[in-house]
Design a protein around this nucleic acid. Structure first.
Lengths: 76, 76
DNA sequence: AGTAATTTGTTCGTATGTATC
DNA sequence: AGATACATACGAACAAATTAC
């Protein structure tokens, strides 16, 4: 059964995915830090962690511990 | 380079996946509850929640709120 | 050169809502 | 009506890697 409403983490993941695909975040540029994203979307960092895992699994981003999360290039 | 450590949730997910595929947990049977799994593997229910999300995304299980987590049949 | 601060990612514990038995 | 169980979310802590000073 599908969930009755769209989950917060899924809304955020889709929003970021749309921004990436629109060119707002070009390839190999750094996304705002998880802390900033948590503030921007008014959610906890735990929710952002779930979002990042989703984006990573979709092949849209890659994270570098200690550095940041970057947009994947078209040629992986 | 030192080999990257396998994550706890990934180890558990792989262990359960192997048990499912070995026939230990046949199709449409109920898995142990998250609480039991948490005790069995000595991890938190939050980690088990991540494990369950992984297994679900792999198409191996499906969760029924209020009932349990069941093994998917070959005909999804 | 070296220490402190930042960042990612994981984990825990808890709380809440919803659905089932 | 009450107990059980999933799914999501929060807050906090930690290690490892990176960056800043």
């Amino acid at each position: 059964m599908a969930p009755a409403r769209r989950m917060t983490y899924e809304q955020i993941a889709d929003d970021l995915a749309a921004r990436i695909e629109s060119g707002e975040y070009p390839a190999h540029t750094k996304l705002p830090s998880n802390r900033e994203l948590a503030t921007l979307y008014s959610v906890s960092m735990g929710t952002i962690a779930t979002v990042q895992r989703l984006l990573r699994e979709r092949g849209l981003t890659y994270g570098v511990p200690g550095a940041g999360v970057y947009v994947e290039g078209p040629d992986d």
